[in-house]
Design a protein around this nucleic acid. Structure first.
Lengths: 246, 246
DNA sequence: GTACATTGCGTCATAATAACACATTATGAT
DNA sequence: ATCATAATGTGTTATTATGACGCAATGTAC
């Protein structure tokens, strides 16, 4: 493959794909052969594709899903983010000849995107047979290659801020969900407990949830009511914003 | 000049430099020879410099100032953002030979930064004798090259959001300022009137302003009190955040 | 002096938030 | 069946934040 003719040079995309399961905020990671470190799913930018499109492509390829919530959050371009040893190791592992390898060993700047997906809908896709791709609790992320740890941190930081500005949580839940589930999600992302009753009032007052005439089945204790997310009302809320401030 | 050896290929930096004067939020723009359109100040990324450093360099060069508030806000990478006609025109204008010009005519992705500067401290610097660089009211921005209008819009949007999350306004004012001045600034950025008395209460309650024992001189009507910004207290506020939301 | 514009401080009604009480529904042990 | 337990659903109250407004003080223009 001759990347130099088909891809934007020195520029890559890395995706922080979040999922929510077992009261854990999980991140989709790929195990690399390099010192057993893990990596964010990423890719390059075809010369005839918008960077956003290239990010969507990565996401499709890795989750098998379409129409996912995806947002660019930052671009990382420290000189030192590139690791000479890592570059060499990758080339050796894939048996890429020195000449073609020059493209891979140039300095790379990477654009960070984060995605919110329904854990149960997403099916992690391997790039090849040997590859290991897994959902990992964000609190137990192993060592990552390059500056991927910093990228992940920044993504989580952005997600927390976004949560205060607009209701994005539903993207991580199935179509029908309960208020307690939504609360657990908020608590997990923000990493602190919230009061049940105040949470209910605040989240329903936003006016983007539809209460269904249906309760969750097969649960211990009292069955909680099911809700769906109202996309039309959400669009309205987006315009006015959640916490105005001024 | 052989850019291909010294600069990151296909990647540029554009800075939206904001200043505040005469109750106007102004943007520093450069007039180009291309159809008399204007441009954001920008630059390329030396291979041995972090992208943030490269942005600081652009800022230093254009304002003569150091230690400026500077923040990356988005990266723009649509395929169509590059304009074939524009690329040719630039090469012809600077008399760049076809071979060396290839570097300029490749696809470019650009990283957007916005800066907040004290209008009176900044001295717009020309890149060369012919160049025209000017502060222009953000409400009267002329036609811009490429997708610079979209970049500017996004910068302003980000500034408005940031204003709700943390007190950044003081960056646009001189060291000593009055509450009415600060309010005018907020009104200009947010594009709506605020109540004097409520503004005073809210802005002082944040606890990052020091009231000086000094009034503004040579003003019509009642002389307003002068304040300074308290950087230590600001750092504390940054950690907790302004509008928590949850 | 008087009219006028602007600043500084205060009041009041309303809305948003935090802390907490209690009844309801379902499970599982006895 | 009864009871303890655990979760959900709804309500109450005190506190705080916000929005709308009144009024005196200060300085300019005439």
């Amino acid at each position: 493959m001759d990347n130099s003719k088909n891809y934007q040079p020195g520029l890559s995309i890395d995706c922080v794909i979040f999922g929510f399961h077992d009261n854990q905020l999980k991140v989709l990671l790929i195990k690399t052969p390099y010192e057993n470190k893990w990596s964010l799913p990423g890719g390059f930018i075809p010369l005839d594709q918008d960077i956003d499109t290239a990010a969507v492509t990565v996401l499709n390829k890795r989750t098998g899903m379409e129409g996912i919530f995806l947002r660019q959050f930052a671009t990382f371009g420290k000189v030192k983010r590139n690791d000479e040893h890592f570059g060499k190791a990758v080339l050796e592992h894939f048996n890429i000849p020195e000449e073609a390898g020059k493209w891979f060993r140039q300095r790379f700047v990477t654009i960070g995107y984060y995605a919110l997906v329904d854990f149960l809908q997403a099916v992690p896709q391997k790039g090849n047979q040997q590859e290991i791709i897994e959902w990992i609790d964000h609190k137990e992320v192993p060592e990552l290659i390059l500056d991927h740890a910093a990228i992940l941190d920044k993504a989580l930081d952005t997600l927390r801020t976004e949560l205060n500005l607009m209701p994005v949580g539903y993207n991580l839940l199935p179509e029908k969900f309960t208020i307690p589930e939504l609360q657990k999600l908020y608590e997990t992302i923000l990493d602190r407990k919230l009061d049940r009753r105040n949470f209910l009032r605040k989240i329903t007052n936003i006016g983007i949830l539809n209460k269904l005439d249906e309760k969750k089945s097969n649960v211990a204790h009292k069955a909680p009511n099911l809700y769906t997310f109202d996309k039309d009302k959400y669009e309205e809320v987006l315009k006015s914003g959640l916490n105005q401030g001024w």
